[in-house]
Design a protein around this nucleic acid. Sequence first.
DNA 1: CCTTTCGCAGTATGTTCATATCGCAATGGT
DNA 2: ACCATTGCGATATGAACATACTGCGAAAGG
Lengths: 213, 213
Amino acid sequence: MPRVVDHAARRSEIVLALWGVIHERGLDGVSFRAVAEAAGVSIGRIQHYFASKEELIREGCTQMVVAAQSRYAELSRSGGPEHQLWTLVSGPVPSTRPQRLGAAVWYAYLAKSVAEPALREIIGAAIEDAGARAIRLLTTVRSGADGEGTDAVGARHGAEARSRSEHEALALLALGDGLAQRVVVGAIDGPEALAALAEEFTRRGLTPGGILD
Amino acid sequence: MPRVVDHAARRSEIVLALWGVIHERGLDGVSFRAVAEAAGVSIGRIQHYFASKEELIREGCTQMVVAAQSRYAELSRSGGPEHQLWTLVSGPVPSTRPQRLGAAVWYAYLAKSVAEPALREIIGAAIEDAGARAIRLLTTVRSGADGEGTDAVGARHGAEARSRSEHEALALLALGDGLAQRVVVGAIDGPEALAALAEEFTRRGLTPGGILD
DNA sequence: CCTTTCGCAGTATGTTCATATCGCAATGGT
DNA sequence: ACCATTGCGATATGAACATACTGCGAAAGG
């Protein structure tokens, strides 16, 4: 058998170059030529690994979701539900340069997803996943904080609490996204956004995590 | 002099068609051909009114900002600062179909602004303007609510209050943006977003406005 | 050493696009 | 009635692009 290369690694290299192109030229502005140049390889190689431009862009989107989820998994590994919630909500807020790049690329995908069902599906699933996770974490935190019983009254109370948790989770996630957006646009910087988020956590009786790099 | 037409009106017609194209095909996908088709006019006409594709897209962005600001001005005309604040913060959240279109287009511009300084300037100014307005309104509301004096202690207290108002305004605006984003992506619908926003207003001791169409 | 098979660079092809240009039509002043 | 000026449809031009295709070099087993 002939020459063996790590297929997945090569694809990741190319996707990385793709993100660079998206960041500095927008999702339009992506072409095989541009990506090949950014990656420092030939156009032929890009074509060899991705059958079409669409597939390349789609793969870039799923890898972005995967990267975000692994990052969350790693950062939230050690820590209680409160810390995990902070990690989840503050995740979108970029505080380093590569994170800013990632966030900007993410917004490009988000905007495109309106017109592109394939992207909408990927992104919609990711958002739904984060939402469900946040609700679960918040419910745990809230029920753990109260000394709630498990009798009938407590159960009714629990249903109410679940609904409140849903609203609260939505508000927290939306706040994180909104702040992230402002960082990407340059209206505020990362630390400011994280400070605002931390303040909001505190105001809700939650413990914000530290500012991670 | 020859044939007289309303220049501005023609430009607006074309920009409207541009928005339609952006909405259903993304900012890439915009071409003179596509816009001409959407507007039901010839390519030549588009060229006659816009020297380049870039200029067309840029004009589309400024008109979007102008439209949002006029809408705010009109909706907030009758009402105190609290009502104006609600109008400002809930403005980005789309609750009708044309508003959803507008919001989607706005996100396309937002994403592109990362790579396009011309757009970044327009959008940055709009965001800054909204931010300043929100801070002003919130400061007014907060100082009006307390029965604060104007002595030295009151003044120091006022500086603190200003800083708190800044943080609070940021949080409210970011929340509005984050909720709007989720509506655009389809994770929640307009009423849900407005309800979440209203709940947040209430939680902060502010009066949310009604759900406007 | 030789052959087979994959990795991938380079080039060809047809399409789409932005933009420049031409020319006709409409119009209002003279 | 005529003409200068503007609106704008239509077409030409050349660049950029996605994609298909060709072929060579490099390995890995026989």
